[in-house]
Simulated assay, not measured.
Amino acid sequence: MASEHKPGYTHFGYEQVPVHEKRARVAGVFTSVARRYDLMNDLMSLGIHRLWKRFVIDLAGVRPGERVLDVAGGTGDLVREFARAVGPQGLAVLSDINAMMLGEGRRRLLDRGIVGVPLVQADAEKLPFAEGSFDCITIGFGLRNVTDKDAALRSMRACLKPGGRLLVLEFSKPLNSALSKVYDEYSFKVLPLMGRLVANDEASYRYLAESIRMHPDQATLKRMMEEAGLARVQVYNLTGGIVAVHRGFRLE
């Protein structure tokens, strides 16, 4: 769970940095890992991240003709499925703050024969869409990298139509202390080693491990979503709470 930080500062992993500096440092991490992002996800999660994302896709319940936004969508694996679900009468939009990640997303969508998905370089804290634009918004493994999570939640809520839903897929707090110990060992010893051997970038993967620990736990994120104006917030723990999906609705 995230701890307090000095006024004007925020967390970059375990380090406290000036608020204005975090965005550039996070951008550096994802520019560095973009080309090997999906490969590293497969290695780090033993492929389980695909099941977590499948759960989100099913829970979103996207229907033909709907308008869907995937925030911090990176390489496009969620928006790819949403584009198929909404069909030619709907709209699926991929957004990310990082140009390199968007480029990878575009390439991977085209490799799978998916065209016509708008790509928008956008900050989750200040989404450039009109009030009530979307039936469904998702953010998968992106919220923990946002500087002002409350602002991002408010921005996403504003972009939902009344009755629309927001789904947040993110690493969370394991429910079992024994699992938590094993997970810590894996995160702080194996992940940086993988980063060094596979991506030649130990520091970025150490940051990713630390950023997970600084992210709010399940109950805290649920409260944050409610304070941002979302209702009927439900929490779904996956893989013993290593990952959680939060779903909330804009009622009016």
Rank of each mutant, 00 (worst) to 15 (best):
S3Y: 15
E4N: 14
H5Y: 14
H5N: 12
G8M: 08
G8C: 06
Y9D: 12
T10A: 03
G13A: 02
E15R: 14
V17M: 05
P18G: 11
E21A: 14
A24F: 15
A24N: 14
G28W: 04
V29E: 04
T31D: 15
L39N: 05
D42V: 03
L43A: 07
M44P: 00
S45I: 04
L46F: 15
L46Q: 12
R50I: 01
W52V: 02
R54Y: 11
F55C: 14
I57C: 10
L59Y: 13
G61K: 07
V62H: 01
R63L: 13
R63M: 14
P64I: 07
E66D: 07
V68A: 01
D70Q: 02
V71K: 03
G73W: 00
G73H: 01
G76H: 01
D77H: 04
V79M: 04
V79K: 01
E81D: 11
G90F: 07
G90H: 03
G90R: 00
L91E: 02
L94H: 03
S95K: 06
I97F: 15
A99R: 06
M101K: 00
L102E: 01
G105H: 01
L110R: 14
D111F: 00
R112K: 13
R112V: 13
I114R: 00
G116S: 09
V117I: 11
V120Y: 08
V120K: 10
A122I: 09
A122G: 10
L127T: 07
L127V: 10
F129V: 00
E131F: 15
S133Q: 10
D135G: 07
I137G: 00
T138F: 11
I139N: 09
F141R: 01
G142V: 06
L143V: 08
R144Q: 07
N145A: 03
T147L: 09
D150F: 13
D150L: 13
A151R: 04
A152Q: 05
L153D: 02
A158I: 10
K161D: 11
P162N: 11
R165I: 01
L166S: 05
E170Y: 11
S172C: 09
K173S: 14
P174A: 05
L175A: 10
L175Q: 13
S177T: 13
A178V: 15
L179H: 06
L179I: 11
S180L: 15
S180I: 12
V182I: 15
E185R: 13
Y186H: 10
K189S: 14
L191R: 09
P192K: 02
L193P: 02
M194P: 03
G195I: 01
V198G: 04
N200I: 12
D201E: 11
Y205N: 11
L208M: 12
E210G: 05
E210P: 05
P216E: 06
A219I: 10
L221H: 05
R223G: 12
A228G: 00
G229T: 07
A231P: 09
V233I: 06
N237I: 06
I242K: 04
V245I: 07
V245E: 01
H246M: 07
R247V: 15
G248D: 03
